[in-house]
Design a protein around this nucleic acid. Sequence first.
DNA 1: TATGAATGAGACTTCATTCAT
DNA 2: AATGAATGAAGTCTCATTCAT
Lengths: 217, 217, 217, 217
Amino acid sequence: MAVSRTFEQLDPKKKKRILSAAITEFATEGYAGASMNVLVEKLGIAKGSIFSYFQDKHGLFMFVFEQALEQVKRYLRRVRDETTSDDLFTRLEKTLLAGVSFIRAHPYIFRIYLRVLFEGDLPNRNTLIGSIRQHSIGYLTEFVEVAKQRGEIRPDIDSTVAAFVIEAVLDRFLQGYCLEHLDTGMGLFGAGGDELERWASGVIAVLRDGLGGQSQR
Amino acid sequence: MAVSRTFEQLDPKKKKRILSAAITEFATEGYAGASMNVLVEKLGIAKGSIFSYFQDKHGLFMFVFEQALEQVKRYLRRVRDETTSDDLFTRLEKTLLAGVSFIRAHPYIFRIYLRVLFEGDLPNRNTLIGSIRQHSIGYLTEFVEVAKQRGEIRPDIDSTVAAFVIEAVLDRFLQGYCLEHLDTGMGLFGAGGDELERWASGVIAVLRDGLGGQSQR
Amino acid sequence: MAVSRTFEQLDPKKKKRILSAAITEFATEGYAGASMNVLVEKLGIAKGSIFSYFQDKHGLFMFVFEQALEQVKRYLRRVRDETTSDDLFTRLEKTLLAGVSFIRAHPYIFRIYLRVLFEGDLPNRNTLIGSIRQHSIGYLTEFVEVAKQRGEIRPDIDSTVAAFVIEAVLDRFLQGYCLEHLDTGMGLFGAGGDELERWASGVIAVLRDGLGGQSQR
Amino acid sequence: MAVSRTFEQLDPKKKKRILSAAITEFATEGYAGASMNVLVEKLGIAKGSIFSYFQDKHGLFMFVFEQALEQVKRYLRRVRDETTSDDLFTRLEKTLLAGVSFIRAHPYIFRIYLRVLFEGDLPNRNTLIGSIRQHSIGYLTEFVEVAKQRGEIRPDIDSTVAAFVIEAVLDRFLQGYCLEHLDTGMGLFGAGGDELERWASGVIAVLRDGLGGQSQR
DNA sequence: TATGAATGAGACTTCATTCAT
DNA sequence: AATGAATGAAGTCTCATTCAT
């Protein structure tokens, strides 16, 4: 296992402090760039301690990743449960805004996710990507199928294609937000709140109605 | 400047060999993970030489990035010029397929781009991201505006939003393709060609017509 | 002393378990290579316990060594007592075969002995070697002197030289057996039993009669 | 390969200094106990340098071992060539004394050999032991066969047994000398020269004539 | 008495970079 | 202009040992 009992039996406050510092380190430096030395120094613990908590650097990363994924899952589950009576496009809009507020609250967790997607030298990478994709596709497929039954989307559209496009737009929206918000402070989406909501609703509207003029149908 | 005159005066074949090896190294290992030692060993040149060509590791990366971006630009420019008579959605579809064939031909260049997006420890990262975004947004904005004049898209749609959604879908499509094709060999998009084209046209259709049922209009 | 009273008051089974695990660890890894961490993990006891039983790593080794030597002594004493009525060369042959069966029964104890001989970084090494040599020389000197009184060996031979040569051949025979048997599975001496006995009797015959031709006497 | 060209092209004096320091370190501390840190500090070179000369710790050891073996071979070859006209037992006696003087001149090389024999955690150990045994058995087998043709040893003696006993006595004699001379300063063999030669000739005499009285034949 | 978390020195190894040739 | 030996800081990880509980 990646985590030792030593770690599990630690004072919860200390556990949280370590997890949080590790998330930050991996998120800002990447897997290869992250330094166990720096981490323990920041935490003010002995070098040996971190290796008694986790088997090695990779074990620590796995733990960090699992915790991060778990938090995202909890968040999405809540959004899903709170929007069962909404129509598809309202749900998507709410998911989008919830995603933004999640990133605001946990700025580094989303970066961990992005790291996993794009760092080639990460051990076990394919497995991790599998975990992510499986969950997000599952989440959206459920939405699409419910919507089809309710007649909210055109029946001639392939469910997989629909889920893909939705995921693309949502994910890319959050990527864009994350990049701007965390690095540049502000950008396309504006710093405030109004701007953001208008963006979200605009994007969802395109998903619903498309870009094409009426002439085509 | 990042590149010394010494390098520029090199035999073009040698220059190309160095560039290509550097692209591969950065793409597969990331900025932090890439090793100048390994690079010169692969190239069979002296360790001192690479530092006489480029100021330091970062200088080499900047050069690599600029060259990669230039290649992408050339490619896009050609697609743009070859599709001026097509309507927006045909152009987008052709752009998408051209993107896939570019990734196939230059597997590591797209990875460099992804690295830049998601590696936090990269110096000058914001500038680089700016370069990319500016160009891709510019490219698509041109498409959208031409299309608006021709009445190919609904006039009530904000151009910026349109460009964003288009970029999201295109970029995410290519990310997906890149990840699957390079790592797992095959996946969502299938290994062959037919599958891919059906996916592309399905995705573009959603961009044109949206997901929503007929009731809306 | 090297061993604490705490240890001596332990349940005999537990004591034996600890001794046995320690022998194995030192024998397979050497003094420097042996790890207290690994040892306590194998034993399933607390890290602090082993240090309450023995002053430190060296104390544990001293205890292990003493116990091992004691076992060897007991074994040899028995062989000596069971062969009092045999002539010298029969006694030596029986000692040799007894040595082989001892190594078979306690594969790691002989390795401990070899370690002591050849590991330079072992503290107190000279004392330990003294213990070993003193005993084995004593054992053989007794044999030689009894044999001299009985007229089984030539009177012109120096007792010390005789004891040395005997020890050399016996010891080297067992070293060879140990190395082959434990590492390569089989070798010079063959895997089975017959082969071994023929070897032993051949070697002893040379000790008795020498290699030289009949012209010599 | 274990040795880099960087090392081979070094100033011969520096090469010798490094080899010598490495031999000493491995001989006195064993493979596991030897420290690359300590070695470079003793040598006054940078830590990185030693790793540019040899792939890693094991590579350095392999080099050291090969060099040591080569020196031993050269020495034995010379003894063999200088004693072709002597009878077997004279040759053995000269070999023995030559061995002692080799150990005196290169105190640590013999210890390297002993290390290889008895350190279990050494990588590639079996191969190394093979190299040693093959050579020493080959050397002695040649002696024995020449002696048989000349009628210097009894024809009823198995050649393999003869070679084994000879090797046992010679090797053990040198082990004993090495241990005493290097650790305790003096011991069984005496510190001076006379003592030693009397020992050698006594031991060889036993090999030739055996221990047994005349009654037996 | 037993526990096991904490420690920090030290292990091997790779790194980007410099500079005399 | 090109070389490649030298550097030493920093990397991950293991070690024997201590001490509060």
